[in-house]
C-alpha cells in the first residue's frame, strides 16, 4: 500500500512538471519496495553435487580438474538462494591404477567450488573417496599353495601374483556426491518475495536440506 502511494505520488509530481523530483521519489520508492537483502549460506551447509565427467582410477591422474554442478538447489530458511545447475569444479586429489599383486585402484576426489557470478562458493568434505576391490588375499592364498608346489616344480609360482590385478574404480558422469560449503557465503536476493513463493512449491526439497543440516555436528 505504501509502495502504491509512493508510486502514485511520483506520477502526480511528474504530471505537475517536475520530472527530476519525480525520478528521485520513484527511485526511493523502488528501493523501499525491494531493499537489498543478503542471505547467509553458513559454513558446512551440505550440498548435493553432480559430477559431469567420467572419472576413474585408471583414466584420471592426480591434479586433474573436472566439472561439477549443483544437483539440488540450496535453500536457506525456506528460500532458494542458489539454484540447481550452478556450475563448479572439482579436483582429483589422488588416482592410482589397479596393479599387480592384486592391488586395487584408488581414487580420492575433492570438490573445490561452485560459481556464483564472479564469485566462488568454496566447497569441502566431498564424500567420494574409494579404493576398488583388491585381490591381495587371493594372491596371498595362491602363494601359500605355490610355496608348497614349487618345492617339486622349478617354477617361481609366487610370481603369478604379479599378473593378478585388483579392480579399478569408475565414477560415471552423472554420479551424485555430497559435499559441504567451506565458508560463510552471502548471496544477495533481489526479490525475496518470489524466492519464498518458489519455496512453497518445493516442500520436499526444503525438508531434505533442513534434515541434512540437522544431521551435521
Amino acid at each position: 500500500m505504501r509502495r502504491f502511494g509512493q508510486a502514485a505520488l511520483a506520477a502526480l509530481i511528474t504530471f505537475a512538471g517536475t520530472p527530476a523530483l519525480a525520478q528521485d521519489i520513484a527511485t526511493e520508492a523502488a528501493s523501499d519496495a525491494f531493499p537489498p537483502v543478503e542471505i547467509l549460506i553458513p559454513k558446512l551447509t551440505p550440498v548435493m553435487l553432480e559430477i559431469l565427467s567420467p572419472l576413474g582410477s585408471k583414466t584420471s591422474t592426480s591434479f586433474d580438474r573436472f566439472q561439477i554442478r549443483l544437483a539440488d538447489p540450496i535453500f536457506i530458511d525456506g528460500m532458494e538462494v542458489l539454484p540447481a545447475g550452478a556450475m563448479g569444479e572439482g579436483e582429483v586429489v589422488h588416482a592410482k591404477k589397479a596393479g599387480g599383486m592384486g592391488t586395487a585402484g584408488e581414487l580420492v576426489l575433492a570438490a573445490r567450488y561452485i560459481g556464483f557470478g564472479e564469485r566462488r562458493l568454496a566447497l569441502r568434505s566431498m564424500s567420494l573417496s574409494a579404493a576398488g576391490k583388491d585381490a591381495v588375499g587371493a594372491v596371498d592364498g595362491l602363494n601359500a599353495v605355490g610355496a608348497g608346489i614349487s618345492t617339486f616344480v622349478p617354477v617361481p609360482i609366487g610370481l603369478v601374483g604379479f599378473v593378478i590385478s585388483g579392480r579399478n574404480i569408475a565414477i560415471p558422469a552423472g554420479t551424485v556426491a555430497m559435499a559441504k560449503t567451506a565458508e560463510d557465503f552471502t548471496v544477495p536476493i533481489s526479490d525475496p518475495l518470489s524466492g519464498a513463493g518458489e519455496d512453497a512449491d518445493k516442500p520436499s526439497s526444503v525438508s531434505m536440506a533442513e534434515n541434512l543440516t540437522k544431521g551435521e555436528d
Partner: peptide
C-alpha cells in the same frame, strides 16, 4: 596399510579407507 607380496620381500600398500 597392507603388505602385499614382492619379489624379494613384502611391499606395503597404502590405500584410502
Amino acid at each position: 596399510c597392507r603388505i602385499k607380496m614382492g619379489i624379494m620381500s613384502g611391499r606395503p600398500d597404502l590405500r584410502p579407507s
